[in-house]
Design a protein around this nucleic acid. Structure first.
Length: 291
DNA sequence: CTTGGGTCCTGTGCGC
DNA sequence: TGCGCACAGGACCCAA
């Protein structure tokens, strides 16, 4: 799926079209994604005004004027596109349909929305691992999707001391632990491999054996890779595009992910990238400089 | 409690 | 070209 940098890129793409906008028309084309849509989902969105476009971990959260928050998880292949309104605010579609636009024929277009600003926003998801919900805003952080999440990796609570405490006594591999959203919320398979490479830590190291000193290298490595990826507009994998339909380009800067057999990118290192499998997922690491 | 494995779903790319 | 299989960014659930 889109990991944190991709979700953040989508958030930034949606924000101009949706923040402050009223959803004038909502077309829901199937009853479910990964889970059923909430009862009356389209009706509860229609007419609401989006107060903000936020991200928590890999979730998009849009608090509405109705007191509910529209939550979206992109799963593996979820994607939004935004077509800006041609005529600016007030460019309203006639009741019951989208005006001035080609119909969306794509069989994976599951939700279509038009705003009072004339924008059309479409959600696609081929694999339907994504999901959406409507949660009372006042109870958002107590909802099961959010209650157990660890700190944001770019937030002030994500510290070497936090990792030391959460890793204490655990023999699970550090790579697997970093994918656990309860430890830190937003990393996925790509950026965990990239961060461990930058930190010089072998992915199969038992998490509890990492010293504070080594964790003091890991935290800045996570920061750096996420910040660079966000600045690059995320990574374009098979199915990801940002909300404008443009392609991120951070994938060209992967140092280990999907680079099995390549020489290590670290200057002076003579190792090569090896692929292993941990917890059923591919891990990429340098054979020489990650210990 | 931790850990490993299976599961949801579809598309793509590879080897034969 | 065509076919079958492995694999793909996530996260939940269950059994041991």
């Amino acid at each position: 799926m889109p990991e944190l940098p991709e979700v953040e890129t989508v958030r930034r793409g949606l924000e101009p079209a949706l923040r402050g906008a009223t959803l004038t028309r909502v077309e829901q084309r199937r009853p479910d994604l990964r889970f059923p849509f909430p009862d009356g989902f389209a009706e509860r969105l229609q007419g609401a005004t989006v107060q903000a476009v936020e991200r928590r971990a890999k979730y998009l959260r849009m608090p509405l004027s109705t007191g509910e928050t529209w939550v979206t998880h992109l799963g593996m292949t979820g994607r939004f596109t935004v077509e800006a309104g041609a005529n600016g605010p007030g460019d309203l579609a006639p009741p019951g349909r989208f005006h001035n636009r080609a119909p969306v024929e794509d069989k994976h277009a599951h939700l279509l929305i038009e705003t009072d600003g004339g924008a059309r926003v479409v959600f696609f998801d081929a694999r339907r691992f994504g999901y959406m919900g409507l949660i009372p805003t006042a109870e958002l952080d107590e909802h099961p999707w959010f209650a157990g999440l660890g700190p944001e990796p770019l937030g002030e609570d994500f510290t070497p001391a936090h990792l030391l405490r959460r890793f204490a006594g655990r023999v699970q591999a550090v790579k697997v632990m970093l994918l656990d959203q309860r430890i830190v919320a937003g990393l996925g398979n790509i950026y965990v491999s990239e961060a461990l490479h930058r930190a010089g830590i072998a992915p199969d190291t038992p998490a509890g054996r990492l010293t504070l000193q080594r964790l003091k290298r890991l935290v800045p490595a996570v920061h750096a890779v996420l910040e660079e990826a966000i600045a690059a507009g995320g990574s374009t994998l098979r199915d990801f595009a940002n909300a404008d339909g443009d392609l991120g380009y951070f994938q060209h800067r992967f140092r280990v992910y999907d680079r099995e057999g390549d020489p290590c990118a670290k200057p002076g290192c003579r190792g090569k990238v090896v692929r292993t499998v941990q917890a059923g997922r591919s891990t990429y690491a340098c054979s020489a400089c990650q210990r």
